[in-house]
Design a protein around this nucleic acid. Sequence first.
DNA 1: CGGTATCCACGTTGATACTG
DNA 2: CAGTATCAACGTGGATACCG
Lengths: 128, 128
Amino acid sequence: MSELPPIAVRFDDPACADAAQPFRVGDKWTGVVLRCLEDGAARRFGELRAALPWITAKVLTETLRSMERSGFLARSAYDENPPRVEYALTPLGRSLLGPLDTACAWARAHGTEIGDARAAYTGDRPVA
Amino acid sequence: MSELPPIAVRFDDPACADAAQPFRVGDKWTGVVLRCLEDGAARRFGELRAALPWITAKVLTETLRSMERSGFLARSAYDENPPRVEYALTPLGRSLLGPLDTACAWARAHGTEIGDARAAYTGDRPVA
DNA sequence: CGGTATCCACGTTGATACTG
DNA sequence: CAGTATCAACGTGGATACCG
């Protein structure tokens, strides 16, 4: 299985610019994990860690547990040495990808307008 | 201008069941405010308050400020007695409605599956 | 009417260290 | 390798009271 490239901070990445990203899927990191698994392949914990170096192991674990609990992904543990654990999207998890794409498309089309609006915002509240 | 009906807790309402609602737009209440203004009409602060009685004035003010700052809505204050302030979506704010509908459609189609998955979840992690 | 000011409880994130 | 334990820091959200 090929290594996942680290997910750079992209505009359509919920990890970056929460400020400029009005759409969120699930918890803070759910969207990025979905992106890591969107091709349908199963990934090991370490692969996900390597792809998302800015998430601590603890938070990644919590995110994966939460997604598992909601039925978005399935966890498979193999009793080997060294241990191996794999995560893959379920059909329910894959069903999130469409709306996620819609949100990302919005961000690509309009995201910069948010920054423009904030830059232009003075806090003045003229009286009509 | 007609009174806004209170927004009941609907499944596609981000206010209810954060747990079962994986999509969020902006801050906690941004989505509901968008819904209140989606018809394009301007609403007074008090109208929004009445429609969203479960949001405190402070938090509603913060939400409106944040949305104004991001360019999602425009605030108009009229120097009258008693004071009048109106909020209306900007074109940028209206552009959010499409993705919001997509997210709500997902929730209607798949939302119950999350609850099912949680009910079925035992925390057992069988070893393969 | 349309807000602010103040204070607080809570949940989430994060750093660090440790383990089967 | 794939986690867990612990603790600290922070931001959000909410209750209440007051103001121009």
